[in-house]
Simulated assay, not measured.
Amino acid sequence: MTTEPAPAERITVLVADDQEIVRTGLTMILNAQDDIEVVGEASDGRTAVELARRLRPDVSLLDIRMPGIDGIEATRLLAGADVADPLAVVVITTFDLDEYVYAALRAGARGFLLKDAGPALLAQAIQAAAAGDALIAPSVTTRLLHAFADAGPRNVPAQPLDPLTAREEEVLLAVARGRTNTEIARELFVTLSTVKSHVANLMTKVGARNRVEVALWAYDTGRVRPGRP
């Protein structure tokens, strides 16, 4: 007698947007994925925070402009530096503004998408956040690199107290460019477990809680600049 393999566990998602038609559309797109299930919806930031804390979804998908508490403040409350048990947050918005991107990532978001990103990229961002990776819309990533380069040098040490190895530097640059662990493993011809180990070491060395903070540290220290291979 053969037994059927157990179904893969679905990624649970909370969707928060103040426009009902947008919430409905996002929910339909995500529920159409085999491995994603929307378990809650909210029309404002305060409700989103309350629901996320109660439901503990794998990922919270938050719009930036919402009444009461906006998406950035909601992100800070769910995934900020002072949150003991942070949740994974992906921010999505119609407004393609650099200050929103930077504020969202500093608040603890694991991803940033525009609402015109399309179903495939939306699903990838949710899947990446649930896996501990980060996905930022490619056009946004390019502008971020330019913004950090134009801002000039910062008062940040070029090396942590425990210097990065040559391999860790390679992984750091890949993380900063939004590569997932799987993509990094393929590009560097190493195993997935090796990449995860390097990312964990990077977080420890640079004092980051997640890979987005690792990427921001790479920008802050000038390791990533436009045109750099």
Rank of each mutant, 00 (worst) to 15 (best):
L114N: 08
D35G: 04
A129R: 10
V175W: 01
R209Q: 02
Y102G: 04
P163E: 09
N31A: 01
V22C: 02
A8D: 10
A48C: 07
A208I: 02
I69A: 00
P226C: 07
P57Y: 10
G71W: 06
R106M: 10
R54Y: 00
T165L: 06
T47Q: 15
R106N: 15
E41Q: 15
I69V: 13
P160C: 11
T165Y: 04
R225K: 14
R56L: 14
T221F: 03
L192V: 06
P229R: 13
R223P: 10
I36F: 00
A208T: 02
T194R: 09
V195N: 00
T75I: 07
R228K: 14
G45Q: 13
L78D: 03
R154A: 11
L135D: 02
V199H: 02
V15L: 13
L14V: 12
A125M: 05
H146S: 14
A134E: 00
P57S: 05
A131N: 07
H198S: 00
E37G: 07
R154P: 09
M203K: 14
L26Q: 08
A176L: 09
V190D: 05
A81C: 01
L216V: 07
R186G: 07
P157L: 10
A32E: 13
G80K: 08
N31P: 07
A151R: 14
G40T: 06
M66I: 01
V90Q: 12
T27A: 14
P86F: 05
Y102E: 15
G71T: 09
G118D: 08
V156G: 06
A52P: 08
A88P: 11
D58V: 04
V190K: 08
V83M: 12
G71I: 05
A120H: 15
A149H: 08
P160I: 09
S197L: 04
G222R: 02
M1D: 11
V195E: 00
P57M: 03
A218P: 04
I126S: 05
T93C: 11
L173K: 13
A147L: 15
V175D: 00
V101F: 12
Y100E: 06
A131T: 10
T93L: 10
R186F: 02
V13S: 10
D82L: 11
D34M: 13
T24P: 06
L61A: 07
V90E: 12
D34T: 12
L26F: 03
K115P: 11
D35N: 13
T24A: 14
P67K: 06
T94S: 12
P163T: 04
V206I: 11
S139Q: 15
N155C: 14
G80R: 02
A42F: 08
A16V: 04
F112L: 09
L97Y: 14
P67H: 01
V175A: 01
I69W: 01
D85F: 01
G45E: 13
T93P: 12
T75G: 13
V156N: 07
V171T: 07
T2P: 15
A158D: 13
P153C: 05
N181F: 05
D44T: 01
A32F: 09
I72P: 11
L77N: 07
G68H: 04
R54S: 14
Y219E: 10
L145A: 15
L164C: 03
A79Y: 11
A128M: 07
D133F: 11
G222K: 05
A117I: 11
M66W: 08
L14I: 02
T27P: 00
